[in-house]
Amino acid sequence: MKASIIIAAYNIEKYIERCLISAINQTERDIEIIVVNDGSTDNTLKIIKSTAINDDRINIINKNNGGVSEARKSGLIEAKGEYILFLDGDDWLESNCIEELYKSANESEYDVILYNAYNAFDNRKEELYTFNQIYLDEEFNPIKAILLGEIAPTIWSKFIRREFINNNNIEFPSDISFAEDLATAANIFINNPKVGFNNKCLYNYYQRNDSISRKISNKVIDIDEAIEFIKRKLIEKNLYNTYKKEFEYMVFRHLFISKILRVTELYPQRKIVFKQYMDRDVSIRNNKYISRDLSYGNKNLKLRMKLYYLSYEISTIFDLLKGFVKRPVVSNK
């Protein structure tokens, strides 16, 4: 069997049929489709069963809710395909997705194929590049690429040889409730896979207005746990000192830039995330990747960064006065 499509599904009754039909209608027929219902409380399981009724390639796993990582692990245990594709239950595939990816994988027995996607809205699609296009022509270092953000930290954008996952004991951390994809993707590339590329857009990444990735919640503080997981994996492989600058750049980008300077609302956990960043003691001056980014930044960005290093409270007042952030709207209901 060429591939296993593993679909994690939790309370997505509006979307799961479209997702499952896109897997059923793949032009490559030598596949299995494993749907993991992760304790849904709506009609998700009912829709899965009715959609799957006439296709014996579909294996339905019904389990108690344990989160997306546990759902993926449950599917992986059952998988028999040569390659694995993880499909989120609110997304869908282009009909030639598996055919294209398997063809690319077999060109040189790659462990991982990176491919592009569409940002899919209700009324349009936009191309979404999940890896830096320079790697189509230039040398590729998988560890550097994932730490520097040259690869999207998403699991769905990787077509992965099942044997590679098993032989390297790739861990899918279930104790991280936010940024688990970042942790898992980094773990894959820290194990130095042989990587190939397919430049076609083969996956539809649906932009839901109610998506958790669009909201700031208490779970945001778990980004630091994902970062610690990655550090631990680098240390286990004796790679931390080799890639310390790249690791610190990842910390800078995911904690400071993404969750402090680019967030436009003073979400309740913001000060906690800032402390997590400062506790990481990232050396800005001696990091060529951070220096590179700052050289491209505008004056306001550089000023705000300097102020935050002096005082979180003063910087927050400055950001409020300048309109860089706003206080959250509090409902009286």
Results as ranks from 00 to 15, higher is better:
Tyr243Asn: 01
Gly297Leu: 12
Gln269Asn: 14
Arg232Phe: 15
Leu255Asn: 01
Leu255Gly: 00
Glu248Trp: 04
Lys233Glu: 15
Ile230Gly: 05
Lys322Ile: 06
Thr264Gly: 13
Leu307Asn: 07
Leu234Glu: 12
Lys288Phe: 00
Asn241Thr: 09
Leu266Lys: 12
Thr242Met: 03
Thr316Glu: 09
Ser283His: 06
Gln276Cys: 02
Phe252Val: 08
Ile260Cys: 09
Leu301Tyr: 06
Phe252Leu: 05
Glu265Lys: 11
Ser315Ile: 04
Asp281His: 06
Tyr289Lys: 00
Asn241Phe: 12
Pro268Thr: 14
Ser311Asn: 01
Met278Val: 07
Phe256Glu: 01
Glu236Tyr: 15
Phe256Gly: 04
Glu225Val: 03
Arg292Lys: 14
Tyr249Gly: 08
Phe318Thr: 04
Leu294Phe: 15
Glu265Pro: 00
Leu239Asp: 03
Leu307Val: 02
Arg253His: 11
Arg262Asp: 07
Lys259Glu: 12
Glu313Gly: 05
Asn300Gly: 09
Glu246Leu: 04
Leu301Phe: 13
Glu228Gly: 06
Leu307Ala: 02
Leu266Asp: 04
Ile272Cys: 03
Phe256Trp: 03
Leu266His: 05
Ser315Cys: 04
Leu310Ile: 11
Ser295Ile: 14
Lys306Asp: 06
Asp222Gly: 01
Ile272Ala: 03
Lys231Asn: 14
Ser291Asn: 12
Arg232Ile: 13
Ile284Ser: 00
Ile227Tyr: 08
Leu239Val: 09
Leu310Glu: 05
Leu307Thr: 02
Leu320Lys: 07
Ile257Tyr: 04
Ile257Gly: 00
Glu265Asp: 10
Gln276Ser: 06
Arg304Met: 09
Leu234Gln: 13
Leu294Tyr: 13
Ile314Thr: 07
Glu228Met: 13
Ser295Val: 10
Lys302Asn: 06
